[in-house]
């Protein structure tokens, strides 16, 4: 009965119904197509960038890249061994400084401070630091360390990178600790464990995978940072001194200087370095995601 009436109405006045329907469906289809295209565009750009790096960088990848130091202006050959090692040292230095501070600060926010005014302010400030322009952090460390110490140094570079890593670690540590159920903590406290022990043995253990993910993501974030190193670790074309004073060669700044240089071998090395650094960072990011996924499934 109902369908018959409906059919009758549809056949009686097909024009307005059909038109309304068509415009609604058209709008819907346009939305679907546009959104899908935008997503494809995003994926396409990532693919394009990776393809560019492989095409331009693979030719420059030779054993010398990993064994020889950066060439001076106008000289042939050379590698980026000192830049790779320098970058590793600076990144590790940054993470070693940032991890204890970031983890403890995140622990304070999640376990001690909670919703107190101070914790709210620190959370707010941390979110701002998370997105603050990294070049300003370079300026800050320049005034804080490079000027008083009388020159560029790897230590200043490490501190600058640590300042970028800390907010990332604070945020992830707090988020992960907040996921730990309160009953676990209460169970620990009921056994007579003091707060510090409950945190270290229960909360940290339960949130471990997420916290490690945060540290890995922070590593990926600082490994490619160029702007904060420009005024702190600077760069040089030799092996740096063991005490890290003076310019410390590093990949991002080397790539920056070499990519814009007029010498073909410098440009080739810049592309090789760009390929190495991007693949390492993407690999780190993917590993971090897989770690978290495994934890969630369990």
């Amino acid at each position: 009965m109902d369908t018959a009436v409906y059919d009758q109405a549809a056949t009686a006045a097909p024009a307005p119904w059909g038109r309304v329907r068509r415009s609604r469906h058209l709008a819907d289809r346009v939305l679907r197509i546009v959104c899908t295209l935008f997503t494809l565009l995003g994926a396409f750009v990532l693919g394009w960038i990776l393809l560019m790096l492989v095409v331009e960088g693979i030719g420059g990848l030779s054993p010398e890249v990993f064994t020889e130091t950066t060439p001076g202006p106008g000289t042939q050959g050379g590698g980026i061994a000192n830049a790779i090692v320098g970058s590793l040292i600076l990144t590790v230095l940054g993470i070693v400084i940032a991890t204890p501070i970031g983890v403890l600060a995140g622990t304070y926010l999640a376990e001690y401070g909670k919703d107190s005014p101070l914790a709210t302010i620190i959370r707010f400030v941390n979110d701002i630091l998370l997105a603050a322009p990294s070049i300003l952090i370079g300026l800050f460390v320049y005034i804080l360390m490079v000027q008083p110490m009388g020159g560029y140094s790897g230590w200043a570079g490490g501190v600058a990178l640590a300042i970028i890593a800390i907010p990332v670690i604070v945020r992830s540590t707090e988020d992960m600790l907040r996921l730990v159920p309160g009953s676990l903590r209460e169970a620990g406290a009921a056994l007579g464990a003091p707060m510090s022990k409950v945190i270290v043995k229960i909360s940290w253990k339960a949130a471990r995978a997420g916290m490690v993910t945060g540290v890995i993501l922070a590593t990926a974030r600082i490994a490619g940072e160029t702007a904060p190193l420009l005024f702190t670790a600077l760069n040089n074309t030799f092996w740096f001194s063991p005490n890290l004073m003076g310019g410390v060669s590093n990949l991002p700044v080397t790539i920056y200087q070499f990519a814009l240089a007029p010498y073909p071998n410098w440009r080739e090395l810049a592309w090789a370095g760009a390929l190495i650094i991007t693949l390492s960072i993407l690999a780190l990011s993917i590993v971090a995601r897989l770690l978290l996924k495994k934890d969630k499934v369990r």
């Binding site: 560019m52 160029t226 960072i281 990011s285 993917i286």
Partner: peptide
Amino acid sequence: STTIELLAAVPSIIYGMW
């Protein structure tokens, strides 16, 4: 999701070169 998020992981200097 991961593909789009990886766009954020690419270092800014690589965007500059591209």
